[in-house]
Design a binder for these strands. Structure first.
Lengths: 151, 151
DNA sequence: TATTGTTATACTCTATAACTATA
DNA sequence: TATAGTTATAGAGTATAACAATA
């Protein structure tokens, strides 16, 4: 990848900086809802079927179970998420995104699409598409690595 | 860019998730030093000549001036950064990275290079290179947007 | 005995506001 | 009057540890 391993020239460093910055931007955009990017991540994971229970969320997002309780509480209070006990295993809470939750996801999806458009404008369609593909593959890897029984 | 604007399918969302995750990884790697990714960002910006004063850091990283005081204090205490008054304008503190600071940057650069190697292994050399280029361009834009007199 | 979730507690990071000093 | 930096304070976000319920 980079022939120069000077920190600021690495993809890892840039990914960290750009991603953190974007998270702040999303946080700002969410401020009026009282939610954070992690609330949004929770909704997204559940909506996508990548997480079924609170435990799944904790593992996928590498976050403590006690934080997931709080995130789920707040999402539930706002009517964006529902918890119900799993009849097959009453320890578990099955999570589902409500219609209102899907609306919020759609709204934030629009915002994200607008950011994507900016990225594409800056990079051009080809490089933008390549960035897309690379990020999609890395995301798949991350999810795969953390799905069931990973250390 | 993405034809689907569903939040999890956007480049913006993936960039946020992957970047945040990487920031946590760096934070973990820095833990024994008592430093955070923002300390590292500060050193990197100063070392690269992108920031000369605390004010520059605050603007570049979109962080409050009072936080920069704390970051600089802690970096200085560890002998990684030096502050000296600008003779031309005694309100300003000129920041410079010490040899020890450069060593830390080099060490973290090695870690970042290792992450880059993983990315490249996962994406292949071509897509990895394209990711590199895209991130570099976006980083340049970010720095440019925040250099002197931006809103 | 292990898993899932919860509660109580404390700590870290960060911003806001009021202040000092220089210009 | 505006800029650069500092201090004091408070708040948000998160983890750790101890716990309860279920398997």
């Amino acid at each position: 990848m980079a022939t120069d391993s000077s920190l600021p020239e690495t993809a890892a460093f840039r990914l960290m900086v750009l991603g953190t910055d974007l998270a702040n931007e999303f946080a700002e955009h969410l401020r009026e809802t009282g939610l954070t990017p992690k609330h949004l991540g929770t909704l997204a994971m559940v909506s996508q079927g990548l997480a079924r229970t609170q435990d799944d969320i904790a593992r996928l997002m590498r976050v403590s179970p006690s934080l997931v309780v709080r995130l789920a509480d707040q999402l539930e209070q706002r009517g964006l998420l529902e918890r119900r006990r799993d009849p097959a295993n009453r320890r578990k809470h099955i999570l589902t995104v409500t219609g209102k939750g899907e609306s919020l996801l759609a709204e934030m999806g629009s915002h994200a699409a607008a950011v994507d458009a900016e990225l594409s404008a800056r990079l051009g369609q080809r490089l933008g598409g390549q960035l897309d593909e690379a990020l999609a593959r890395l995301m798949d890897k991350l999810v795969e690595d953390r799905s069931r029984k990973s250390p």
